[in-house]
Design a protein around this nucleic acid. Structure first.
Lengths: 244, 244
DNA sequence: ATGCAGGTGTGATGGCGATCACAGTGGGAT
DNA sequence: ATCCCACTGTGATCGCCATCACACCTGCAT
């Protein structure tokens, strides 16, 4: 289920330093890449927490208590309708910030956040975070940019749901979007799929069975290839074309 | 088509002051409500433009040139798929800021903005705007909050599209969401619909004919009432229930 | 009046895909 | 080995709703 392959290694919960100031991955993480003195202050107000696999970080509808920065592990963000349908918004990875918009708007969290593997998370309470923003002007710029990026992602979701006529189109689009962002940079177009068909279905706005059928279809048509949990997109161009 | 009734008055293009500093509506507009000195500077870098009805302010896919603040008039924000399907994201009203996320991310505009009536718009070029943000720390906070709100709106769109199983559900949800935000504050639940059935369909992710049928259905079931272009939601509770 | 164009109402039809049902499969426990 | 459980594969059915087709109803221009 996790990113780890068939080898028995536990999911990639690399050890995370005690303080953000010592984190070596900071530079490549949009939000974390803050000026020195801001980071120092951040370390003072942030609380480091370890979550076991399959635990709930926060739940849809709860009044926003603060923000959560993912340090290690994957986290599923999903919203549920009254009658049990589920929409998976995205799988958050290290560097992502959760609960930002709800915290800024002082609204309930829009989604439920559930760990898919053991995770390390830093959290900051709402009050402290807002004060932090006021104090360090350019952190707000950072935050704005982070939210702008999140906006763009949800926009793509909405677009996919509204404009990709068929289930096949939505799934194809999802795989494409995903391959692009997962292998950030060059079109690696091969990625490991840590999700079940059911979860894919909830991201593509279709049903479990349809996903199964479509993936097999795609494979028969040689649009994709699968080895174990990894998927390669063989013909991105043809793939694009079926998005509609 | 515009908000004006059957009387021959031109659509509500109230005169807008030359400078934001003199704008009396500023206080109630999230983004515009800036500290004095920021407003002064904003007036220096902003350009005031009048657009006739049915004109394009910017187009989906264009590299972001800057932001646009709506001073008067309504503007349709829509995205289109290769094969001509259209998704209407929202109808922007005075106080809304367009192109914010694209500008911050230095990405192409996500949508096309088309005026529905004569509009007054203030625009700021990307470079100037970014510099403006750097200079006035707390404006970034404002911007972040504005984007957070936009995020929330798109999120609701995505949620509606993904979770409201039936076309009826999506339309009902749309009318509800809309009545709530349009009559901001108390549940007025009566609002004028400046849109054609076709456009409603493009917002609800369904077809023109289905919208026609559903609206009649809703009226027969006494969920809504219509007088001319205005719609009242009679039984919000029953309405909620059919969202699914 | 006449024509036209954009919007609306309504039936008929067909296809996509949700849903149900159940059979295989594989990996973890014990 | 064996059970079990979550996941995957596949057929059958059936309902929603997109689409086509066409009638009607404004307002507007000529």
């Amino acid at each position: 289920m996790a990113t780890s392959g068939k080898n028995g290694t536990p999911p990639a919960t690399r050890q995370v330093p005690e303080r953000c100031a010592q984190c070596t991955d900071r530079a490549e993480r949009l939000f974390c890449n803050l000026p020195e003195e801001a980071i120092e202050r951040f370390d003072e107000i942030a609380m480091q927490i370890s979550y076991p696999s399959r635990s709930i970080v926060f739940e849809e509808g709860q009044r926003a208590a603060g923000i959560f920065v993912v340090c290690s592990g994957q986290i599923k963000l999903a919203a549920t309708s009254r009658d049990g349908r589920t929409m998976i918004l995205k799988i958050a990875v290290p560097g992502d910030v959760l609960g930002l918009t709800a915290t800024l708007n002082d609204l309930p969290y829009e989604v439920t956040a559930e760990t898919l593997e053991p995770c390390q998370i830093r959290s900051v309470r709402r009050r402290d975070f807002l004060e932090f923003l006021s104090h360090f002007g350019d952190v707000s710029r950072h935050a704005a940019q982070v939210i702008a990026r999140e906006y763009h992602e949800v926009f793509l979701d909405a677009r996919r749901l509204a404009l990709s006529g068929s289930a096949a189109g939505r799934l194809a689009q999802l795989l494409l979007d995903w391959a692009r962002t997962s292998s950030c940079g060059k079109p690696e177009l091969r990625f490991t799929m840590a999700l079940t068909h059911e979860e894919l279905a909830n991201m593509a706005g279709t049903s479990r069975e349809t996903v199964t059928r479509l993936l097999n279809q795609f494979e028969r048509d040689e649009l994709i290839a699968r080895h174990g949990a990894s998927i390669s997109i063989l013909h991105p161009v043809d793939m694009e074309r079926m998005v509609g």
